[in-house]
Amino acid sequence: MIDLDEIKSEWLALKVENASLQQKNKELTRRLVDARIANNQQKLAKNYRIGYMGLCFPLLAWLLYQLIHPSVYLCIIYSVYGIILGLFDLWFMDFIKKADYTTISTINALEHASKVVIYQNWATIASIIACIGVLALFFYEMAQLGADNIIWGGVIGGVIGGIIGTRKCIDNHRLARRMLSELRNIEEEE
């Protein structure tokens, strides 16, 4: 059996290697002052700047209309799809950035991290489903124009990519749900 109180005194007696950490502190701070490094939270949030692209979908739809003359209906659906995804991405970018890990409690930090994973997965699944709808309409119109190669290539790629991506999202979502449920058990114990 292990005597934890004895281990505690030995834990307190452990020393850190001063020289290498002092050097590391100087280097990291220099890089921070020069804005040459970012944390994972900032890097993840940056991925969602692509939301600004989504807001440009109405312009892309107009260009598509000028080039290949799909139906107005398709252009509207395409624009709405882009705007909704774009707005979500920008909201999510803000959600990721706003948690300040130096001020919130550990429970709240865990909850935030789990929600980030869950929202990411929901968004991915929803965008895949919506994308399939938009693409189905697009390929239907291509079929009307007789462009069979485009249709078959798109269907096969979409099915394979959708299956792989959806499976991964479901696994990540399950892990995040488990963490949130552990957090709720902690709150119930209070």
Binding site: K15, E17, L21, Y101, T106, L110
Partner: peptide, 27 residues
């Protein structure tokens, strides 16, 4: 909070940790 959320987002970590992981602690 940093360590816990890192672990949470990179959730492939196993409990079978090696004792050889290099850490700047000396006794």
């Amino acid at each position: 909070n940093t360590c816990i959320t890192w672990i949470r987002r990179n959730k492939k970590h196993s409990n079978n940790e090696t004792l050889d992981t290099e850490m700047p602690l000396i006794a």
